[in-house]
C-alpha cells in the first residue's frame, strides 16, 4: 500500500506514545507534548489503535486462561493459622476460581486478591497485581511466578513435586504451605507449614544455592545474595493474612502500614501530617477498605479524615 513516509512516521510516533503511556505517569512536559500531538485525527486514530494493540497483547497473554468464578467458597484456612471467622466471608465474597487446566496463566488485577483452586487440588492465593503461569506435567508440577506474590497450599504428592520458579530461584515442595514474592530479581520465600527446598540457577548451572527452609523460615534472595532467617509464628501469620483478605499490623509504623493498605485500595490513603508517620499501629483491617483504616488511624492518633474524590487524607486535627 502507499505506506508513504509520513504515515510510517506517524505510526512510529504513535507506538512510542503508547509505550510511554504504558510505562506510567507522563511527565508534565510529555503530557503537554502529547496533548498537542494528538490533535490531528489521523494521529489520534493511530494512537488509539496502538494503545489498544498493547492492551490486546496483555489480554492474550494473561486472559486466555481466566476461568469463571465458582459460587461456593471452601475453607482453605488451616488450624495452624487461626484468624477471625469474618475472614471466611471475605474469601467467599471474592469467590474461588477454578483453574482446572494443567497449562495456563492466572492473574490478579491491581487492587484484587484472587484465590484459585488448581487442577491437582492445590490452592493458590494471588496477591494484588500478580501473574502466574501453571505448567503441570505428569512427573512434576511447575508454577512460574512472573510477578507479584502468591501463597501456595500444596496438595500432597510425593511422586510429583510442586516447584515454584521465581526468576532463577526454584522453590520445591511436596505438601506444605508457603508464599513466594517476586520483585524484579529479588525473591522472598516464607514457609508457614512443612518444608521447602530453595535452589538457584546461576548462568544455567543448576543448584548453585541449595537451602532447606522449614516452617516459620524466611529467605530473601537478591541477584547475588541469599539470606535465611527464622521468624516468630506470629509474624508469619501476619504476613499471610492478606490471603484471607486481611492486613495485620503489629507495631509497624503508620507510614509502612499506609503503603501496604494502598496496595489494595482503589482510593489511596494520604498522610498530610508527616509527624504521624512514625507512630506504630496495631490492628487487623480488611484489604480494600481504606476509609475504615483511615478512620481508625485518625481516631488512634488524634487526627481527622478528609475524604476527597482521588484520595483519603489523614490530617492533623
Amino acid at each position: 500500500m502507499s505506506r508513504n513516509g509520513d504515515g510510517d512516521q506517524l505510526r512510529a510516533e504513535a507506538a512510542v506514545w503508547a509505550v510511554r503511556l504504558d510505562r506510567g505517569q507522563l511527565s508534565e512536559d510529555e503530557a503537554a507534548e502529547l496533548a498537542a500531538w494528538e490533535q490531528d485525527p489521523q494521529r489520534l486514530g493511530a494512537l488509539v489503535r496502538a494503545r489498544s494493540g498493547w492492551l490486546r497483547i496483555n489480554e492474550l497473554v494473561s486472559a486466555d486462561h481466566q476461568q469463571k468464578p465458582t459460587p461456593s467458597g471452601f475453607s482453605w484456612r488451616r488450624a495452624g493459622v487461626g484468624l477471625a471467622a469474618s475472614a471466611c466471608i471475605v474469601l467467599a465474597a471474592g469467590g474461588w476460581m477454578l483453574a482446572l487446566s494443567n497449562i495456563g496463566w492466572i492473574t490478579a488485577p491491581e487492587n484484587h486478591i484472587r484465590p484459585v483452586a488448581l487442577a491437582d487440588g492445590s490452592r493458590v492465593v494471588l496477591d494484588t497485581a500478580t501473574v502466574l503461569q501453571v505448567r503441570f506435567r505428569p512427573a512434576q508440577r511447575d508454577v512460574y511466578l512472573r510477578r507479584g506474590e502468591a501463597i501456595f497450599q500444596v496438595a500432597h504428592n510425593r511422586l510429583r513435586p510442586f516447584v515454584v520458579h521465581a526468576g532463577d530461584v526454584d522453590v520445591r515442595a511436596v505438601g506444605t504451605r508457603f508464599s513466594v514474592r517476586r520483585d524484579g530479581t529479588n525473591v522472598r520465600v516464607l514457609v508457614a507449614e512443612g518444608t521447602v527446598e530453595v535452589t538457584r540457577r546461576n548462568a544455567g548451572q543448576r543448584d548453585s544455592v541449595h537451602q532447606q527452609l522449614a516452617a516459620n523460615g524466611a529467605l530473601l534472595a537478591s541477584r547475588d545474595h541469599a539470606e535465611a532467617e527464622t521468624l516468630a509464628p506470629r509474624e508469619i501469620e501476619r504476613r499471610f493474612a492478606w490471603s484471607d483478605g486481611l492486613l495485620m499490623f503489629d507495631g509497624q509504623s503508620l507510614a509502612t502500614a499506609i503503603l501496604e493498605i494502598n496496595r489494595y485500595a482503589e482510593r489511596p490513603v494520604v498522610l498530610d501530617d508527616p509527624r504521624l508517620g512514625d507512630r506504630s499501629i496495631v490492628g487487623v483491617f480488611k484489604a480494600g477498605e481504606s476509609e475504615d483504616f483511615a478512620e481508625s488511624a485518625a481516631a488512634a492518633f488524634g487526627g481527622r479524615v478528609i475524604l476527597k474524590d482521588s484520595a483519603i487524607h489523614i490530617a492533623a486535627r
Partner: peptide, 15 residues
C-alpha cells in the same frame, strides 16, 4: 485512498 488512513480515521471517529 490509503487503507491506513481510513483505519486511523475510523478509530478516531469511534473514539
Amino acid at each position: 485512498c490509503d487503507p491506513d488512513e481510513i483505519v486511523q480515521e475510523t478509530y478516531a471517529r469511534l473514539w
